[in-house]
């Protein structure tokens, strides 16, 4: 009988990760972090704390010094394709994420790159659009959609790839209250390990099991949201209130 490998319990493991931008600015300073399967982790901190830079390391868009592992797989050139299939990264600006003339083509982009068959691609597209509540938007141009709709479509473009880990960069910034509430609800329902980069306290309280506080490229606190986010002195020290 085949031995069934035990699934790794750690979805993301980051060891001693540092990164400096080409202009010399140090964005990450020896970060250590482990995210467990099924967890929803909020990465919080003021502007310029290195949150987005960290997110870009999770699928190898940026590679710093140190080690990043995704589902037991080291992020390096050789594993890049597999890592990007496992990690769905949703960017902050939906106009960056949605680059195709129609929604359908954009949502199909990831599955097509995974070289799925035509039927599988179509299935993945309609399933992802149904998840985010955008059935019937297949042939719409992103330019004609509202900001909230574009955000949902952006999410669909990675959900169609069926990732194990979802990384969301500032998912509710610039959204109106209702769009924000609905989007937070949507994120809550999705079953995946989630890393949410945000400085929205309400959102962190609503969806995160755990909050990692960053400032100046370092992790300064790590704990449960109800504890961390009620520590006003801590939040004030790091520019979150």
């Amino acid at each position: 009988m085949d031995v069934i490998p035990i699934a790794p319990q750690v979805a993301i493991r980051i060891e001693d990760l540092s990164y400096a931008y080409p202009d010399g600015h140090r964005a990450l300073n020896s970060i250590d972090l482990a995210v467990h399967r099924g967890e929803t982790v909020g990465i919080m901190g003021p502007n310029g704390a290195g949150k987005s830079t960290l997110a870009l390391h999770l699928n190898g868009i940026l590679t710093g010094q140190g080690r990043v592992e995704i589902m037991g797989l080291e992020v390096n050139k050789k594993n890049l394709k597999e890592v990007r299939n496992k990690v769905g990264l949703v960017f902050q600006d939906p106009d960056d994420q949605l680059f195709s003339p129609t929604v359908k083509e954009d949502v199909a982009f990831g599955p097509l790159n995974q070289r799925l068959s035509k039927e599988q691609v179509e299935h993945a597209v309609s399933r992802a659009l149904a998840w985010v509540g955008l059935e019937g938007f297949e042939d719409r141009s992103p330019f004609h959609m509202s900001f909230g709709e574009k955000k949902r479509a952006s999410l669909a473009t990675v959900l169609s790839m069926d990732p194990d880990i979802l990384v969301l960069d500032e998912p509710v910034s610039n959204m109106d209250p209702r769009g924000r509430r609905e989007f937070i609800q949507l994120i809550g329902i999705l079953e995946a390990t989630k890393v949410v980069v945000t400085h929205d306290l309400d959102m962190a309280r609503a969806v995160c099991d755990r909050v990692v506080l960053m400032d100046k490229g370092e992790v300064v606190a790590d704990g449960r949201p109800e504890k961390l986010l009620s520590d006003n002195a801590l939040l004030e020290r790091h520019g979150l209130v």
Partner: peptide
């Protein structure tokens, strides 16, 4: 913006070839 769009494409497995939908 071009840089960000490319990052979003690369994140979804873009490898220089652009597959067709239908």
């Amino acid at each position: 913006r071009a840089e960000h769009v490319y990052q979003a494409m690369a994140s979804r497995g873009f490898d220089g070839t652009y597959p067709r939908y239908s």
